[in-house]
Amino acid sequence: MDNSSYSPRERRRLYKDPDRGKICGVCAGIAEYLGLEVWVVRIIAVSLLIFVNGAVLVAYIVMCFVLDPKPGHVSNRGCFGSERKRRKPSESDDSRPYRPTVKDVWSSGTSPKDLFSQVEDKFSVIEKKLQKMESYVTSNKFNLDQEFKKMAD
């Protein structure tokens, strides 16, 4: 018995496979990870989408963003309209642009506390505008302006 093809320490990773995928390659990546045919995973995904309230759709969209592309894939076909071809693995890696991983993307950017503060500031501005509009609409001046418009027509 030859055990050279399987190592118990070998850890499989889940990737999306844009080369074999229809929409971003999530089902193709799951099929490869589980050792199933892609069409079987697609039928299961569509069936779950029909019979489950929409959690499958949310999970699929999250996986499109979270999963890294399969190493060595050729294109980003189906990944949210990106038809840009990638270099083949045989080409020189020296000229390849830096492609951040999902971990790099999540660790960079604005902290949640700062982002929450920015959103809170925007909502306070919107709240002030809404209060000003509401006070005008409920005032006598609004009624007077409406009467003048009726007389002008």
Rank of each mutant, 00 (worst) to 15 (best):
M1Q: 10
D2H: 03
N3Q: 11
S4W: 09
S5H: 06
S5E: 08
Y6C: 14
S7E: 03
S7N: 13
S7C: 10
R9G: 15
E10Q: 13
R11C: 06
R12A: 15
R12Q: 14
R12I: 08
R13T: 11
L14S: 04
L14Y: 01
D19F: 01
G21S: 03
K22I: 15
I23Y: 13
V26P: 04
V26Y: 00
I30K: 00
A31L: 02
A31G: 01
E32D: 10
E32W: 01
Y33E: 02
L34C: 12
G35V: 05
G35S: 00
L36C: 14
E37N: 02
V41Q: 03
V41H: 02
I44M: 13
A45Q: 08
A45P: 05
S47G: 15
S47F: 12
L49Q: 10
F51P: 01
F51K: 06
F51C: 07
V52Q: 06
N53A: 15
G54R: 06
A55P: 08
A55G: 15
L57Q: 05
V58E: 11
V62G: 14
V62Q: 09
M63K: 04
F65G: 11
V66D: 03
L67F: 05
D68H: 01
P71K: 00
G72K: 00
H73T: 11
V74I: 13
V74E: 02
S75M: 02
N76M: 09
R77K: 13
R77V: 02
R77M: 10
G78A: 00
G78R: 00
C79W: 08
C79P: 00
G81T: 03
G81I: 00
G81A: 01
S82A: 11
E83G: 11
R86N: 10
R86Y: 05
K88I: 07
S90F: 04
S90G: 08
E91K: 06
S92H: 08
D93S: 15
D94R: 12
S95L: 14
S95A: 11
P97W: 01
P97C: 03
Y98C: 12
T101R: 10
V102W: 10
D104R: 00
D104Q: 05
S108K: 07
S108R: 09
S111Y: 02
S111K: 04
S111T: 11
K113N: 13
F116C: 10
S117M: 10
V119S: 03
V119H: 05
F123G: 04
K128D: 08
Q131L: 12
M133W: 05
M133R: 13
E134N: 10
S135A: 12
S135I: 00
V137H: 04
T138G: 12
N140H: 10
K141T: 07
L144A: 13
L144R: 13
L144I: 12
L144S: 14
Q146Y: 01
Q146C: 11
F148V: 12
K150C: 11
M151K: 09
D153M: 09
D153P: 07
